Simulated scan of single mutants.
Amino acid sequence: MGANQTQNYIPFLKNKNIAVVGNQTSVIFKESGYIHLVDSLLKREIKIKKVFAPEHGFRGKADAGEIVKDGIDQITGLPIVSLYGNHKKPKADDLKEIDVIVFDIQDVGARFYTYISSLHYIMEAAAENDVIVLVLDRPNPNGHYIDGPILEKEYQSFVGMHPVPIVHGLTIGEYAKMINGEKWLKNDIQADLEVIKIKNYNREMNYNLPIKPSPNLPNDQAINLYTSLCFFEGTNVNAGRGTNQQFQIFGSPFLNHNHFDYSYTPVSNPGAKYPKHENEVCYGKDLTQHKNLSQINLEWLIEAYKNTSDQNDFFNDFFNKLAGNKTLQEQIKTGLSAEEVKATWKEGLENYKKMRAQYLLYD
């Protein structure tokens, strides 16, 4: 972890006013376990003035999409400023007297995972207010492949801000370099950016996340399947929210139970207070034992669409934002196979890989 390379950033932070963008994954690993980055910095007498909290909150307990409120961290007494809801970008007052923003969050390498959108707004606000951004890099558990359609500009949203594929194949430090280098910030501004690299890392390494990055990504299987099953968030199919197999199963009351022999019933739980199809029997698939993916699987989405009794309402308004275009929905409705759909991604992916190459920090 970049956070573990304390010798490379602690001297730089001395005698400066610091804000930290972090959550429950922002830790320094030790032989005896780990210590939260904020606790470690405070012990080293680094002057942390505030914490910025992304989606799911500073301690990582909020549901997806749930409003995260400002407050005071009960453990450290530091003020917490939410970067979710209506306040996704720090204001000038939030950065008053701040010299450096330390960004340290575990990402999962998917365009629609909102931590990279928070990174964008942090970098933009920092550039506008002459604040340095220091990214402590972390491995990408889905960094071993690149796949998906390139996001089209008219479908920009907080679940997709940049013209990249769904699985972008970058660490969050590399992604920050790309945001800067491609001048994706407002008015082509660039942040004063420093990245603390991960020691002895390459993207083919199998990285097991010791702390779940958000409430509904509980294990490595969910993180690997997330890039394929998140499409169901834009449909009438439940992707395991309201169970203990989030993003490892999918199902719906509308799916044909003669075709799908697996069933489950979503209920309210700490990671999903109001899950889709709550207390209804859902028919679908159990993917908890599925082999590790090295590409996006579209076959499950297509299979569900073909075997629903509710095709007219299968897709909702969120789907095109997740896909980054309107084309994917149209392709599925017209009956294209997964292979035929993926063939239309090829040129965009080749161009993206050429652009991405200049920002790589690791093999």
Rank of each mutant, 00 (worst) to 15 (best):
T265G: 06
G173S: 08
I122F: 08
Q358W: 00
E278R: 10
L229E: 01
T227Y: 09
L136P: 00
K353M: 14
V68M: 05
N86S: 11
N219F: 00
L336H: 12
S32V: 11
T334N: 10
F254A: 15
K153Y: 13
Y155W: 09
P270K: 05
G22A: 10
N216K: 15
G251C: 07
L328M: 14
P270Q: 07
I132P: 06
N297D: 15
V281K: 03
I166R: 09
N258F: 09
I166V: 14
E182A: 11
A323I: 02
I105R: 07
L13P: 00
N224P: 04
T25G: 06
N292C: 05
E66H: 04
N297S: 15
G271N: 02
M161R: 14
L119E: 07
P275L: 05
A92F: 01
H162I: 10
L301E: 00
D286M: 01
V51E: 09
M355D: 07
P90L: 07
S82A: 12
I101H: 00
K321T: 14
M1C: 13
M123I: 11
P253I: 02
L361R: 03
A323E: 04
Q245V: 08
N187E: 04
N297A: 15
K342G: 08
Y352I: 02
V195Y: 09
K43I: 06
A272F: 05
L349T: 10
G169N: 05
D93W: 10
Y121T: 06
K273D: 13
S309F: 07
A343W: 07
Y305K: 00
P54D: 12
R356E: 09
V131M: 01
Q190I: 13
I189C: 10
K197C: 14
Y201R: 04
V167C: 07
Q74G: 09
D261A: 12
T288H: 02
K346A: 14
K30R: 15
F103K: 01
Q7N: 14
A323G: 07
Q156M: 13
E194W: 13
G33H: 10
Y145K: 05
K47F: 09
G284S: 00
S82P: 03
